[in-house]
């Protein structure tokens, strides 16, 4: 199987889906030569830097029989388009009684670590999870990126693809033949028996590294990647916690009302799973601050493999 990067896997998914479906088109504030050459300037358009307008344009085109793919660039730019995302895209199918479909894919990079400070570093999944009407994917490998993005493009609803900027250059095996990864199906990235680590995006990789470190100390860590946040594979998370009796969550976002809080609730609200918990769950998240610039400050804000190891040890020590 050929190895390609996470970023290339996204591009390959986009190109293959645009080849297969003539109703797809692409809007972003720049148009790559590669895409324009392949699909023409009608279907690949550079927009003005006006996220609100081109987000709304996607909604109207989707309601008119097209399947737009939008790239906001960084997720922080999507905040300029909040009315169109929150009041329009999320609500429009429901508000009109389900009479039209709005198949739209919104791509955006998320995360920190690039020394670009607060307005270009964020992982605001839970802001969007709080809305009803949007699906969202969060791939952590090139394989998942390609498969999930294809599913997102083929979905008949608005789907946000959160793409980790720390993973863009990470390579992995991706089949040459067409495949998809369905939304709402978690992946057990590593099997284990002592503790369940639910890790998101970049922290899947840090979590796997932490599991390696702990294995040497005789601790068996199961690493689960939800892969999509809406819908969330609640059954897979509960099944793992029922097996291990312990839960740690690693997320590059802050903890407050975050995806991490939702995942804990998935576990603790379920009587059967709650009964199997040996210790309270633990979150290993970013600090609850805007992301700072200076390297020492930024690195202090984000969790890494060492923080995950410490979090897991804390849970194990508790019982």
């Amino acid at each position: 199987m050929p190895k390609i990067s996470y970023a290339q896997a996204g591009t390959d998914a986009l190109i293959e889906e645009m080849q297969q479906d003539a109703t797809t088109f692409h809007l972003a504030t720049s148009a790559s030569d590669e895409l324009v050459k392949e699909f023409g300037s009608d279907r690949v358009r550079a927009t003005p830097i006006a996220e609100g307008a081109f987000t709304g344009i996607a909604i109207g085109a989707a309601g008119s029989g097209y399947r737009p793919i939008i790239n906001w660039g960084m997720i922080t730019f999507s905040f300029v388009a909040m009315d169109q995302i929150v009041n329009q895209a999320a609500k429009i199918h429901y508000m009109f009684g389900g009479q039209a479909k709005f198949p739209i894919t919104f791509r955006a990079s998320v995360g920190g670590g690039r020394r670009v400070a607060a307005q270009h570093s964020q992982s605001p999944y839970s802001m969007f999870m709080n809305l009803a009407g949007l699906k969202m994917i969060l791939p952590s490998t090139p394989y998942d990126m390609k498969g999930l993005l294809k599913s997102a493009i083929r979905d008949d609803n608005p789907v946000i693809s959160f793409e980790s900027n720390r993973l863009m250059g990470v390579e992995g095996e991706v089949p040459e033949e067409d495949y998809t990864v369905p939304l709402g199906v978690a992946d057990i990235k590593r099997e284990g028996s002592d503790v369940t680590l639910v890790a998101l995006a970049w922290l899947v990789h840090e979590g796997l590294a932490a599991a390696e470190i702990l294995e040497k100390a005789g601790v068996s860590v199961e690493v689960i990647d939800p892969r999509s946040l809406v819908p969330m594979d609640e059954a897979a998370i509960r099944a793992s916690v029922q097996k291990t009796g312990r839960l740690v969550i690693a997320d590059e976002a802050g903890p407050t009302a975050g995806a991490s809080a939702e995942i804990i609730t998935v576990v603790t609200e379920d009587r059967e799973t709650f009964a199997k918990l040996k210790t309270p769950p633990k979150r290993v998240c970013a600090l609850h601050v805007p992301i700072p610039y200076s390297p020492g400050l930024e690195d202090h804000v984000f969790p890494d493999r060492d923080n995950i190891v410490a979090g897991i040890r804390e849970v194990l020590d508790a019982g």
């Binding site: 009608d42 081109f54 987000t55 709304g56 909604i59 008119s64 097209y66 737009p68 169109q84």
Partner: peptide, 14 residues
């Protein structure tokens, strides 16, 4: 206004 502009884009593409 942006949404119906998207309908205009759909009409142009069509």
């Amino acid at each position: 206004i942006p949404i119906v502009t998207g309908a205009g884009l759909a009409a142009q593409l069509e």
